[in-house]
Design a protein around this nucleic acid. Structure first.
Length: 427
RNA sequence: GCAGAGGUGUCCGAGUGGUUUAAGGUGCAGCCCUGGAAAGGCUGUGUGCGAGAAAUUGCACCAAGAGUUCGAAUCUCUUCCUCUGCGCCA
C-alpha cells in the first residue's frame, strides 16, 4: 500500500513515477474520497462526542430525580443521524481502501523505465556449454533416464502435472537439500508454513485483489475462504502481520520450502512443455524483514545468495536488473536470475529477488519500534527464490548431459545422492 | 463433528448495562532516595483515524462482524480461535 500522505502532498509526482511502470494511474477518485472521508469522520466524531457526554449524564440526572425522557428522545434522534453518517463513512472508507489496495508499488528511482525490453543484464556467470554431439532436450532426457513420468502425471492431474520418480525424485530432493543446507549455514531460520492460507495473506502480500483468479481456492473464491499458496512468500511475509518488532530483532531472516500452486490460466505456450511451467512446482523461498536503513544491504545479500546457489552447481546463468514495468506490482526493485536452457537457446528465470520496501508492511501492518525515537515505523520486506527447483532441474540435466546420454551430477549434490556421480540411461 | 469452558492492555487478572481515565498487580521508562545497588516512593506507559503551528484534543479499538439500547467489554445473533472431554480418522 502506498502512504496516503504522498498522494495528498504530490499526486502529480506519483503519476509520473507510475509512468515508469507503463501505467496510467488516475488518483483523482482517491483524492476526492480521502477529502470526503476526513470531512465525514469529523462530523461523525463530533456527534458521537455529544452523545457520549449527554448519555453519560443520564444516570446522574436520574439520581437527582430529573425527567430524562426528553434527553433520551433527543439522543435517539441523534443516534439515527449517526447511524446514517457512519454507514456513509464506512462505504467511503471501503471504497478508498479498495482503491489504495489496487495501487501498485512505486518503483525505486534508479530503475529504468519501460517493460521487459529494458531489462538489463548485470553479470553473466560461466559459459554456454558446447556439445560435440547433438544434445537432447530435457523431455527426451527425462524419458530416457526415467526421471519424470509426464504421461502418468497427466493421467493423475491433467495438463501441467508430472511425476518425479526414482532418481528424478532423488535429484529434485537433492537440490532442495542443497538449498536448505546453504540457508541454514547463512543463519536463516527454516520455516515449514501451512499451504492453505486465509484471504488476508493474499491481500497482505500484495497479490490480491489482482491475482485472485490465479490461485486455487479450496472451497470457493472469496474473503471467507482459503487458497493454496502460489509461493511461500505469501506465508512468510504475513507471519508477523500486526506485530511490532524491537529494532534489535531486525533483520529477521527466514526461508521456507513449499510447493507452489498456480493456475497459470492461459499462459501455456508450445515451447513451455515439460517442466518449464507447471501448476505445481517446488521452491525454497527466502524472506527478510528489516529496517529501511538495512534494506539495501539485505537486497544485495539475497541476490548474492541466489547467485551463489546456481554458481555452486556450476551452471551457466545471468543476473538481470528488471525495468520498472517488468517488476511485479508489489515490488519496488527486482533482480532476476536466469538460467540457460540449451534446447530453448534462452535464459529462463529461476529466481526473482525483490524488495517491496514498506509496501507489504503497510498492507499487513508490520512495524518496528525505532530504538532512538521510540516511534513505530513500517518494516521493509524482501523476498527471493532460493531457488525454484523445477527449472533448475531442467537446466541442470540439459547443461550436464554427456554424449552417452548420461548426465553428470554436480559435485555439490552428490552427497545428497549417495555419492553417485552420474545418472545413466536405462537399457 | 458433538458437548462444556474460555478469548480483556507486555503479561497476569477484575469487571455481567451507566457517575464515562477498563480496577488491581506485573513488566518497561524516567525521577526521588543511596557511596552504589536492592527495597521503597513518585510520575509516565498501547494502536489506528481525525483537528491543531504546538501544547493539546475528538472518535474508535476488550477475538472478528452484525444487532438491541439514550448508553455495550457486559445483553442477542453469526463467524473465528484456544482449552477439556467424547466421536471420526482413507
Amino acid at each position: 500500500m502506498i502512504n496516503i500522505d504522498l498522494i495528498r502532498k504530490n499526486p502529480q509526482e506519483l503519476v509520473e513515477r507510475y509512468k515508469k511502470r507503463e501505467k496510467d494511474i488516475d488518483l483523482t477518485e482517491i483524492l476526492e474520497l480521502d477529502k470526503k472521508r476526513r470531512a465525514t469522520q469529523q462530523k461523525v466524531d463530533e456527534k458521537k462526542a455529544e452523545r457520549n457526554t449527554v448519555s453519560g449524564q443520564v444516570p446522574v440526572l436520574k439520581k437527582q430525580g430529573k425527567d430524562v425522557a426528553p434527553i433520551i428522545a433527543e439522543m435517539k434522534a441523534l443516534g439515527e443521524e449517526i447511524a446514517v453518517l457512519d454507514k456513509e463513512l464506512g462505504e467511503i472508507s471501503d471504497r478508498l481502501n479498495y482503491l489504495l489496495m489496487c495501487l501498485p508499488n512505486l518503483p525505486d528511482d534508479d530503475l529504468l523505465a519501460g517493460g521487459k525490453e529494458n531489462n538489463k543484464p548485470i553479470k553473466v556467470f560461466g559459459e554456454q556449454p558446447k556439445f560435440d554431439f547433438t544434445p537432447k532436450n530435457h523431455i527426451e532426457l527425462c524419458k530416457d533416464l526415467d526421471l519424470i513420468d509426464y504421461e502418468r502425471g497427466t493421467k493423475l492431474a491433467g495438463n501441467g502435472a508430472w511425476i518425479y520418480k526414482g532418481e528424478g525424485a532423488r535429484l529434485e530432493w537433492a537440490l532442495l537439500n542443497y538449498f536448505i543446507e546453504n540457508h541454514l549455514n547463512d543463519g536463516y531460520q527454516f520455516i515449514l508454513p501451512p499451504h492453505m492460507l486465509g484471504y488476508a495473506c493474499g491481500l497482505g502480500a500484495g497479490q490480491f485483489p489482482k491475482f485472485e483468479d490465479e490461485v486455487y481456492w479450496i472451497d470457493k473464491k472469496g474473503q471467507d475462504s482459503k487458497f493454496i499458496l502460489p509461493t511461500a512468500e505469501t506465508a512468510l511475509v504475513n507471519m508477523h502481520a500486526g506485530e511490532i518488532f524491537a529494532e534489535n530483532e531486525l533483520p529477521k531472516k527466514y526461508f521456507a520450502y513449499t510447493p507452489c500452486y498456480r493456475r497459470e490460466a492461459g499462459s501455456y505456450r508450445a515451447e513451455e512443455r515439460g517442466m518449464i511451467r507447471g501448476h505445481q512446482f517446488n521452491k525454497v523461498e527466502m524472506v527478510q524483514y528489516c529496517t529501511p536503513a538495512q534494506n539495501k544491504q539485505a537486497f544485495e545479500e539475497l541476490v548474492e545468495k541466489a547467485c551463489k546457489l546456481v554458481e555452486g552447481l556450476g551452471l551457466h546463468f545471468r543476473l538481470e536488473k528488471l525495468a520498472a514495468g517488468d517488476c511485479s506490482d508489489s515490488m519496488a526493485r527486482t533482480y532476476d536470475i536466469e538460467i540457460w536452457i540449451p534446447s530453448m537457446q534462452i535464459y529462463k528465470e529461476v529466481s526473482s529477488v525483490s524488495t517491496a520496501n514498506d509496501y507489504q508492511a503497510r498492507r499487513n501492518n508490520t512495524k518496528y519500534r525505532d530504538a532512538k525515537t521510540g516511534k513505530t515505523e513500517y518494516v521493509c520486506t524482501l523476498n527471493g527464490s532460493g531457488l525454484a527447483t523445477s527449472r533448475v532441474f531442467v537446466a541442470l540435466i540439459e547443461q550436464c548431459q554427456n554424449a552417452d546420454g548420461s548426465i553428470t551430477i554436480p559435485v555439490a549434490l552428490r552427497k545428497y545422492m549417495g555419492g553417485q556421480e552420474k545418472i545413466m540411461p536405462k537399457k
